[in-house]
């Protein structure tokens, strides 16, 4: 059953990318806007408005840069092309909707699904640890950013170098956190599996 479920989710994902990202509806701006809206609503329903907004905020720097270059290239008729604005608009819509859609689909994959997968136990442990780390990492990022904004070393100036330092700190902090969390989660899980195997061996 779980294999069918995961196969179905993979098909839905492939269908989404096949139709809207690489497929026939790629150039339809109005449709892409609708897709973003529907995917956003789906995310609000499955997670929360706050989580959805957090994802959109995560995309904002990329989106704004893309839009900025689109407007600039369009105004200067860069490389003789007249479709810069249309092209940037499509990408600005597709990027967040793909990300939110992927996150949305992942919410349908539960720990129980992974446990029931017909794969080796070691691979199952890897998948569970990976899912736990992803989920914890997402939540902790905001708090890390908040703390970094209180450090005088990173808030003295708003130069590019300072911003890069802050993001370097964020990545290192996240790496250290995930490293320890993964190790801890793995230890807990291995311990539980060990106890379970001991009990199973003792059972009549």
């Amino acid at each position: 059953m779980v294999v069918i479920k995961l196969a179905f989710l993979t098909l839905v994902l492939a269908g989404f990318f096949g139709l809207f990202v690489f497929g026939p509806f790629y150039t339809h701006v109005e449709l892409q806007l609708g897709v973003l809206f529907i995917v956003g609503m789906g995310s609000v329903w499955r997670t929360s408005g706050r989580e959805t907004w957090r994802l959109i905020k995560f995309c904002l720097p990329f989106i704004l840069t893309l839009l900025g270059f689109g407007i600039l290239f369009h105004a200067t008729h860069f490389l003789g092309r007249e479709d810069w604005l249309q092209d940037s608009l499509i990408k600005v819509l597709i990027f967040p909707s793909s990300l939110i859609f992927l996150k949305l689909l992942l919410t349908f994959v539960t720990y129980l699904d992974i446990l029931r997968l017909p794969i080796a136990t070691a691979r199952r442990v890897d998948l569970i640890t990976f899912k736990a780390a992803l989920s914890k990492g997402g939540r902790i990022m905001e708090r890390f950013k908040w703390y970094l904004d209180t450090y005088q070393e990173l808030t003295g100036q708003r130069t590019r170098g300072w911003v890069l330092r802050k993001y370097a700190c964020l990545i290192i902090a996240l790496y250290l956190y995930l490293y320890e969390e993964i190790e801890n989660s793995r230890l807990v899980m291995e311990n539980r599996m060990y106890i379970l195997s001991q009990r199973t061996d003792r059972a009549p």
């Binding site: 890390f144 703390y147 450090y151 370097a168 290192i172």
Partner: peptide, 8 residues
Amino acid sequence: TQLYTLKA
């Protein structure tokens, strides 16, 4: 939690 950011 903050400790990770201090280390970084």
